[in-house]
Design a protein around this nucleic acid. Structure first.
Lengths: 191, 191
DNA sequence: CCCGGCGGAGAACGTTCGTTCTCGGTGATG
DNA sequence: CATCACCGAGAACGAACGTTCTCCGCCGGG
C-alpha cells in the first residue's frame, strides 16, 4: 500500500504540474518537490519521464471516465445521457485551473515525436467516441451523428481554453440538441 | 528587399520546424540550418525566440486568412460562404504534413506561461469568430449560431489531428448545415 | 551492540538550449 | 590602397534538463 501510495502521489503531483505549465516546462526536480518524494523513488516507479507522462495520461483518463459516468447517474434516456456530456464539460470549464484538455495539450507538445504518447491520446479520444456512438445507436439515430457530437465536445474544450469562455459548453450543448433532434426526426421519417 | 527576404526566409523555416515538431523541441540552431541564415542574422531580426514565435504565428494568421478568403471567391450567398469554411478545412486536413492547428498547439505548449503568445492565439481565434459572426448576421440567423459554427471548426481540427481522420471536416460541414438550416427556420418562424 | 541493505537528499554528469562573443573575411568609401 | 563597418561561421557561456551516482542515516536480524 505504501508503494502504491508513493506512486499515486507522484502521478498526481506530475499531473498538476504538467497540466498547469505544459510537460516540457516542468522538470523532474519540480515533480520531486511537488510530490515530496525523491528522484530515486520516482525513477524506481517510472523508468523515464516519458513513462511518467504515460502514467499521468492514464490517470487523467480514469478521472475523465469516472467524471463522465458520475455526471449521468440517474439519467436513463440516451438523449439525456448524451446532453449530460456537455453539462459535464460546463462544470469542468468552470474550475479555476481549467487549461484545456490535457490530452490535446500533450498531443500538441509531444505527439509529433513520441508515438507512445500519440497513441495514448488517440486511445482516450477513441474511448470517448465509442461512448458517444453507443448512445447514438441506442436512440436509433444515424451513426454519422456520433462524430458530430464528439467534434462539438472537442471544439468546446479548445474554445473554452483559448477564449477563456466556459459558456462554450452551453453553446455546444444547444447545438447538440439541434443535431440530435434533427437526426431523430430523420430516422422517424424512414422508420 | 534583401532584408525582408531574410526575415521571411527565417519565419517560414521556423514555421515549418515549429509546426512539424513543436516549438520547444526545435532549437535556434535548427532554425538557422533550415533558414540558411546565421544566428546573428536571426537575432538581428528577432530579439528572442519568443519574438520569433510571435512572428511565426502572425505569418500563419496571414496564410490562414488568405486561404479562407480564396476558398470563397465566387460564393455570394452567406450560407455557402459559411459552409466553405469546412471545405477549406477539408483541403487543409488532406495535406501530408497536417498536424493540427498551429495556434492550438502553440497555446497548449506555451500559453500557460507566455501571455504574449496566449494573446496572439486568442486574437487569431477571435478574428475567425468575427468572420463567422458576420456571415451569421448576414443570413439573419440568431447570433448564438456563430459560436456553434466556430466550435464545430475547432473540434474538426483537433479531431482530424489526433485521430488522423480528415473526414472530420465533412462531419463538421454536415452538422453546420443542420444548425444553419435550423437557425434560419427559427428566424423565419418569428419574422 | 553490530551489520548490511535500503531509502532519501542532493551532488554530479552529459546534453541541449537560448543567447552572446570572437574572429576572419569582404565590400564600400575616402 | 587604407580604413572601417558589417557579416557569417562557429565557439563559448550559463542555465536547465533528464538521468545517475555518492554519501549518509536508519532499521531489522544476528
Amino acid at each position: 500500500m505504501t508503494e502504491k501510495g508513493v506512486r499515486a502521489r507522484i502521478v498526481e503531483a506530475a499531473d498538476r504540474l504538467f497540466y498547469g505549465h505544459g510537460i516540457g516546462r516542468v522538470g523532474m526536480d519540480a515533480v520531486r518537490d511537488e510530490a515530496g518524494a525523491s528522484l530515486k523513488a520516482i525513477y524506481r516507479e517510472f523508468s523515464s519521464k516519458e513513462d511518467l507522462v504515460l502514467a499521468v495520461l492514464e490517470h487523467r483518463h480514469q478521472l475523465w471516465t469516472a467524471g463522465l459516468e458520475s455526471a449521468m447517474v440517474g439519467l436513463t434516456e440516451p438523449r439525456e445521457r448524451l446532453l449530460a456530456v456537455y453539462d459535464y464539460l460546463a462544470s469542468w470549464f468552470d474550475e479555476a485551473d481549467f487549461r484545456g484538455c490535457g490530452f490535446i495539450n500533450a498531443f500538441a507538445e509531444l505527439g509529433a515525436d513520441s508515438p507512445r504518447i500519440a497513441a495514448a491520446v488517440r486511445d482516450h479520444k477513441a474511448s470517448f467516441q465509442r461512448y458517444v456512438d453507443a448512445q447514438v445507436v441506442e436512440i436509433g439515430a444515424a451513426p454519422s451523428l456520433g462524430p458530430q457530437l464528439a467534434i462539438l465536445a472537442e471544439g468546446a474544450q479548445t474554445s473554452a481554453a483559448i477564449a477563456g469562455a466556459p459558456d462554450a459548453a452551453m453553446s455546444a450543448r444547444a447545438a447538440a440538441e439541434v443535431l440530435i433532434d434533427a437526426a431523430m426526426a430523420g430516422q422517424a421519417d424512414r422508420g
